[in-house]
Amino acid sequence: MFIETKDLTKNFGGLVAVKSVDFSIEEGKINAIIGPNGAGKSTFFNLVSGSYTPSSGKVIFKGKDITNLPSHKIANLGVARTFQTTNLFEQATVLDNVIVGHRLRTESNLLDAILRTKRYKREEKKCRDKAMEVLDFVGLTGITDKLAGSITQEEKKRVAFALALATEPEVVFLDEPAAGINPGETDGLADLMRKMVKKGITVCLIEHKMQMIMKLADKIMVLNYGEKIAEGTSEEIMNNEAVIEAYLGGDASA
C-alpha cells in the first residue's frame, strides 16, 4: 500500500473535524477528496502531510508509520503539498521562488552560504537547474524573470505546482488547485496533473469543481461532517445515494 490512513481522527476541542477515516491513496493515480464546505478535506490533508498531529489513528507511507512525524520530515520522505492560497515571495522572481523548493534536497548550512563554499556553489547551481527543469515541465519558462507579484492567478497556480515538484516528491497533495481560475485554465491544470502521473508522481487533490474531478480522478473519497461516506470511481460516486443526498443534490459546484 502506498499511503494509507487507519481510523484517522482529529478533534479541535469538542469539534470532530475528521472522524475515523480509512483511506488508501493509490500509487501512480489521481486520487481526489471531495465534499461540502467544512467536510474536513483540508484537515485530512493537514494530517497526512504532518501539519496537524492526529487525535487518534495512523498514517502509513510505504509501510512506514509517519503519524507523528513533523511536516519537514514527511516532505523529506517524498510528500509535497500545495495550499489553497498560493503564498509566493511577491517581490522575488518566479525562478527564485522555485529555487527555494529544492533547498529541501541540499545539505549546505548557513556557514556554507556566508562563506560561499564549493558545496554551496555546487548546490546553488543544482537548485537553479532543478528550478528551470520544473518550470519547463509546468510550462512557465517564458516568465522565469518576472516578479511573482506581477503574474496571473493561473501562472501562480503553476508556480505552486513547480515548487512542489522541485522537492522531488513521490506524491503531491494539491489543495483546490483550480480555485479562482476559468474553465480553459482549469483544463490546462488537469492536463498538467495527468502529465505528473505519467512522470511517475502520485497525485491527491481536494477540489470543488465537480466536472473536472469526474473526468480526471481515478479514485474519489467523499467526506461529509468529517466522515467518509463513499469511495470509488467517478461513476460509482455519481450514482451513490449518500453522496447525492449530502453533496450533489445541493449545489454541485459548492
Rank of each mutant, 00 (worst) to 15 (best):
S51C: 09
Y52P: 01
T53G: 02
T53L: 13
P54L: 02
P54D: 07
S55V: 08
S56F: 12
S56W: 03
S56L: 08
K58M: 09
I60F: 14
I60L: 03
F61G: 11
K62L: 12
K62I: 08
G63Q: 05
G63T: 06
G63P: 05
D65Y: 13
D65N: 12
I66H: 09
T67L: 13
T67Q: 10
T67K: 08
N68Y: 15
N68R: 13
L69P: 10
P70R: 09
P70M: 03
H72W: 15
K73D: 13
I74S: 10
A75P: 03
A75K: 04
A75R: 02
N76Y: 09
G78E: 04
V79Y: 03
V79Q: 02
A80K: 03
R81A: 03
T82L: 11
T82D: 08
T82N: 06
F83D: 03
F83P: 01
T85Y: 14
T85W: 06
T86S: 11
N87R: 14
N87M: 13
N87W: 03
L88R: 09
L88N: 10
L88E: 09
F89T: 07
E90A: 15
E90Q: 15
E90P: 10
Q91H: 13
Q91F: 14
Q91K: 14
A92S: 13
T93F: 09
T93K: 07
T93N: 09
V94L: 11
D96M: 02
I99M: 12
I99F: 05
G101M: 04
G101N: 09
H102P: 01
R103L: 07
R103F: 15
R103C: 07
R103D: 02
R105P: 07
R105Q: 13
R105S: 06
T106W: 08
E107G: 05
S108D: 00
S108T: 08
N109M: 00
N109L: 01
L110M: 13
L110A: 11
L111G: 01
A113V: 14
A113W: 11
I114T: 07
L115W: 09
L115I: 15
L115G: 03
R116T: 14
T117R: 01
T117M: 00
T117C: 04
T117P: 01
K118A: 12
R119P: 01
Y120R: 06
Y120P: 04
Y120D: 04
Y120G: 03
K121W: 06
R122M: 11
R122W: 10
E123Y: 10
E124C: 06
E124Q: 12
E124A: 11
E124R: 11
K125T: 14
K126M: 13
K126G: 08
C127H: 12
K130H: 06
K130D: 02
K130W: 05
A131V: 00
A131E: 03
A131H: 01
M132N: 12
V134H: 00
V138S: 02
G139M: 04
G139N: 07
T141S: 15
T141N: 13
G142M: 00
G142S: 14
I143N: 06
I143E: 01
T144V: 15
D145Q: 12
K146A: 11
G149A: 08
G149I: 11
I151W: 00
I151A: 04
Q153K: 11
Q153I: 15
Q153N: 09
E155G: 00
